[in-house]
Amino acid sequence: MLLSEIVSVLFHGAAYGTILYVISVGLSVTMGLMGFANLAHGVFAMAGGYTLTTLMGWYGVPFPLALLAAFVGTAVIGLILERLLYSRLYDAGELVQVLLCIGLIFIAVALARIGFGAQAQRVALPGYLQGQVSILGRDFIAYRVFIIIFSALLITALWIVIERTRWGAIVRAAVDNGRMAQSIGINTAMVFTLTFMLGSGLAGLGGALGVDLLSVQPTYPFEYLIYFLIVVALGGLGTVRGPFFAALLIGIGDTACKYWVPEFGSFFVFLAVTVILGLRPKGLFGTRA
């Protein structure tokens, strides 16, 4: 009995955690790279969610295409916002950056409400992702299995890009020492923009993938912000691996709390985060401040 509960918590927690990771990893890299605390990161995830639900629900676009559109669409939004707004504030101090983000969140929340109403969006998944699949004699929700597998592939691809490609090497160099990177002729502005784009696109993709986990509704950027930030803060800035473990930990921890001690809600997760961050300001898996 208990074993099956544990398996179930681990399973749902892993699905939740991988979604958190896909959404948050871009935030981690941009924070490490540009030192910009993008509190509005959830806006991109929400935009991905709406893109998917709108394309599938209203226009009957097939699921894989809608996912792709969520990725590309939010990447483009990221590109525009980075060039237009973020890039002007890289040297502007935390307060100004925080304000810009809160402004963007307000705008996004209002636009979502105007465009889609206050209620959460529903989406009918394609038949092949509905129902249960049986693995080792247990039944698992098919869509969550898909989330875990898809994210695992995505994460592998991402790590290969970061660790094996030239662009990945440039990003890592720029995170380690921006001025040095600039002085050896790396166009850091370009690196920033591309990274921001990719990070936003991934957030959109994560938001789209996670429609049934993080409900797509106007207050999304407020509601889940703390989770994205926690993942990044615990994972350590500027890394792509740290946040992965942090996201899994939080996904499973939060699921476990809500399953076994629902009367405490997310209390223990927030408490744990407060304690861990206070004791290890650089995060559990981070080496940089």
Binding site: M31, A37, E94, V98, L225, I226, L229, I230, A233, L237, F264, G265, S266, F267, F270, L271, V273, T274, L277, G278, P281, K282, A289
Partner: peptide
């Protein structure tokens, strides 16, 4: 909280207020 600075500080204030809310 004030032993930390920058992003960690922002995060900690946020986490503590989320804790109070919860």
């Amino acid at each position: 909280v004030l032993r930390t600075s920058g992003l960690t500080l922002i995060m900690l204030t946020l986490a503590i207020s989320a804790l109070c809310l919860e």
